[in-house]
Design a protein around this nucleic acid. Sequence first.
DNA 1: TTATTGAATGATTTATTGATCGTTCACTCC
DNA 2: GGAGTGAACGATCAATAAATCATTCAATAA
Lengths: 202, 202
Amino acid sequence: MLCKDTMRDTIISAAMERLLHYGYAKTTMAEIACDCNMSPGNLYRYFSGKIDIALAIAERHGEELFVHLREIVRDKTLSSSQKIRAFFSAYMHDTYDKLENDPRIYELAQIISKERPDFANGQIAKKRALLVEVLSAGNAAGDFNIPDVVFTAEMMQSALLKFSYPQLWTRLTIDKLERELDGVLDIIVAGITNTKKSPDAA
Amino acid sequence: MLCKDTMRDTIISAAMERLLHYGYAKTTMAEIACDCNMSPGNLYRYFSGKIDIALAIAERHGEELFVHLREIVRDKTLSSSQKIRAFFSAYMHDTYDKLENDPRIYELAQIISKERPDFANGQIAKKRALLVEVLSAGNAAGDFNIPDVVFTAEMMQSALLKFSYPQLWTRLTIDKLERELDGVLDIIVAGITNTKKSPDAA
DNA sequence: TTATTGAATGATTTATTGATCGTTCACTCC
DNA sequence: GGAGTGAACGATCAATAAATCATTCAATAA
């Protein structure tokens, strides 16, 4: 049904405007409805609740980032380790920029990961899938020699946790964060890089 | 002055009893004073405030852990990488056990790191100093080849951040945590291990 | 029938008040 | 005169009341 989707888009746009400007708590369903020239009750024909509108917004942002990260992962001009570095650098900068442009988005993220933890976990899992792609390709190319790429991807996410959680950025500038990310990546990339000579040289 | 220190110990003991049992917020200075058979005002002759009593308790716990970690670092029967693994494992278990035995200690840690961030940073710095010791010794033994041991120690702390912040232990069992710590340590230890043949074999 | 409304409802938030607590200090006791 | 007291003060916290808001649904309009 096209009409329903169009309406959902309208609502999402109106909600996004208010949510990013005034925050989640200070945006009311009545206001969103008013912006869409409809009654509050009618919103529930398109979304099952306020949190689901926020979720739709988060989904859009998440998808945008995912596409960006996937481009990096599939960029044929980058080596495996360059992909890993670019991946986490882009991820961190995306988070930093969103927060810089509109701190309200932080409140949104907090609420969503509290009310809909499955969604937040899903986002992490999607990113892990991309990492798995890089690691597998790296294995195939002889850059890495990783037995369990899924487990290793998890461990990498664990080690680089700090760079996707602004709560843990204690007043650090983006410069310092970048330097720290690079430092951790140095160790990790070295840690997963195949130290043996390439097989065809043997 | 011996008397003053004895009195401080008495106060710390009384406060610890209550703080670990009822939590920081629900423990009053009047109660602590009463337990020590003195008036509330008199507590201020030994500590400059409630938070400083809590700090003294945290200092004790911190010192205990530090001694334990230092034993590991200076254990002559362990290799450099074994020291690193044992170090972070002991650290995580210490945190886990303290939380398990008395969840109120978590509130204490939260308040202290908010009210006295310098203390919390100092604790981290002291642990980093131990790590630097291991890395330097490892360099000397040819196990590692780390140009800047302080920076690398910082990066290791960053990568293993999750295992000292229970906030980030999302309902994980100690078993799963242990497995994850091991996984991250695998990468890190591999990442800092010298891949060249030992110099005397050259 | 389907789309929409808007008043009713109960949960949550905000505002207000009263009580509690940390801290100070003029004073007492040894 | 140093050690200790406890009433006084302002800040913080808890309890209550008032208001706001998300959500529902019977009624209405298309």
